[in-house]
């Protein structure tokens, strides 16, 4: 059987659809130049710096116990903080969408405070709050639990910076979620809890997963709010971004670049995976 190609000879698609509006060239040209000068070329410099080294030395840097400990701590603290944020982010989104109460608009605005508050301010405030003599920290002293200058402090700072990501991803999905589905479940005899677990939660799951990923990715790179509360002891409470800064201060630019590239690749690929996953989940849900 001969293979017959049925495609018509196609004219090459034009670079852009024709428009009567002027200014496409200058606008795109300026956009690309600016983006290249500020973001792309400097990031390229980072990758080239790391690529100058041979594999063995890159491996030696990344498997150094201090570096490994920093990565372990950063990922673990970020994952815990993001998980806490998913749970409470859902509660807060639920409260804001489903309930009407006095001051709802204020509570809604407060959720954005971590976006607006400079990280250094959050850092000093949380660390004085969670220190042994701080308002919250002293409550844990009788139990022998240190929050500030210990790993729990890092988690607290990362919860602070990550919270809005989860609330702002879940909230609009819950807002658009059609209550008819819940009503149908109720008429079929499901109680509120079963309806929530079987109907509402699956619909919110992609948004919660996205919120988790966004909060997690942000937490991996977070610096300002963490370094004040962490205590920064090498191998114990030293996060990856701080390790990069320490390497830079020692003028070990190569070491810093290798660690930076590793952490950048991890957080970018995480976001890409989540993007793909979310598209698939979204489609699945649409089909029912």
């Amino acid at each position: 059987m001969t293979a017959v190609t049925l495609t018509r000879p196609r004219a090459r698609a034009p670079f852009r659809r024709w428009s009567v509006l002027p200014g496409f060239g200058p606008a795109l040209g300026f956009t690309l130049t600016y983006l290249s000068l500020i973001v792309l070329i400097p990031l390229l410099a980072l990758f080239l710096k790391a690529a100058q080294m041979d594999f063995a030395s890159i491996w030696a840097i990344l498997t150094n116990p201090r570096v490994l400990a920093a990565f372990r701590l950063t990922f673990l603290a970020s994952a815990i903080a993001a998980a806490v944020n998913v749970a409470f982010g859902l509660v807060i989104a639920w409260m804001l969408v489903r309930y009407r109460f006095w001051g709802r608009r204020i509570v809604d605005a407060v959720v954005d405070l971590p976006f607006a508050l400079p990280t250094a301010v959050a850092g000093v405030a949380l660390s004085s709050l969670m220190a042994k003599n701080g308002w919250v920290g002293q409550l844990f002293v009788p139990f022998g639990i240190d929050i500030a200058y210990a790993p729990p402090g890092i988690v607290v700072a990362l919860i602070f910076v990550g919270l809005p990501f989860v609330v702002r991803t879940v909230q609009p999905v819950l807002q658009d979620f059609e209550p008819e589905l819940e009503e149908a479940a109720a008429t079929l005899g499901a109680d509120r809890w079963v309806t929530f677990i079987r109907i509402t939660l699956p619909a919110l799951a992609p948004a919660m997963l996205t919120g988790f990923a966004l909060a997690f990715a942000r937490a991996i790179g977070e610096y300002g709010s963490v370094i004040f509360i962490a205590g920064n002891r090498p191998g114990l409470t030293e996060i990856v971004p701080l390790l990069i800064v320490i390497k830079l201060e020692e003028f070990d630019y190569r070491g810093a670049s290798v660690i930076a590239v590793a952490s950048l690749i991890i957080s970018l690929s995480l976001l890409i995976v989540i993007n793909v996953l979310q598209k698939r989940l979204g489609k699945h849900h649409e089909r029912g």
């Binding site: 973001v39 070329i41 400097p42 990031l43 410099a45 980072l46 710096k49 990280t119 990715a217 991996i220 790179g221 977070e222 610096y223 300002g224 971004p241 701080l242 990069i244 800064v245 830079l248 630019y253 810093a256 670049s257 930076a260 952490s263 950048l264 957080s267 970018l268 976001l271």
Partner: peptide, 16 residues
């Protein structure tokens, strides 16, 4: 830039 750690955002300019 939203996905890049602030520390990395600063260090790239040191490298250039």
């Amino acid at each position: 830039p939203f996905s890049v750690s602030p520390v990395i955002a600063g260090m790239v300019f040191l490298l250039v």
